[in-house]
Amino acid sequence: MTRISVTVDGVESTDEVEPRTLLVQYLREARGRTGTPVGCDTSNCGACTVLVDGRAVKSCALLAVQADGREVTTVQGLSNGALHPVQRAFHERHALQCGYCTPGMIMAAVDLLRETPDPTEQEVREGLEGNLCRCTGYQNIVAAVRDAAAELRGAS
């Protein structure tokens, strides 16, 4: 077992983990953050995307021990009461159906907009290439991300 300290959605905790524990398992099982789901075992689907020190990563492609000393933000820590503009835009644009990919999609979009505040449609599509959705055909996701971008630009 290895002792790690990880801040998850603003709460720091020190835990003993097996080194083989994936970050997503740690989040779901040790920290109760089940809002981040697992969709594959090859790091393709991106459903488990979270922010580590502000950067989007796939939490199935990282060991919990690698997150030691870092700050993790999941979809459950994205908003403080009010919805984040990306969450709101997903709702307004009907950018989700079953919702399983949604946490990862939202976190990847937040990260994309950090770096590219005014993305073109193609930039959104390529920026989200690491997140698979089987329901929406992506069109409304792309629209939602661009709407959120406009709102975030207006707010800054």
Partner: peptide
């Protein structure tokens, strides 16, 4: 290479 999440790590 990969996607943006992969490129971060």
């Amino acid at each position: 290479v990969g996607d943006r999440q992969v490129r971060h790590l």
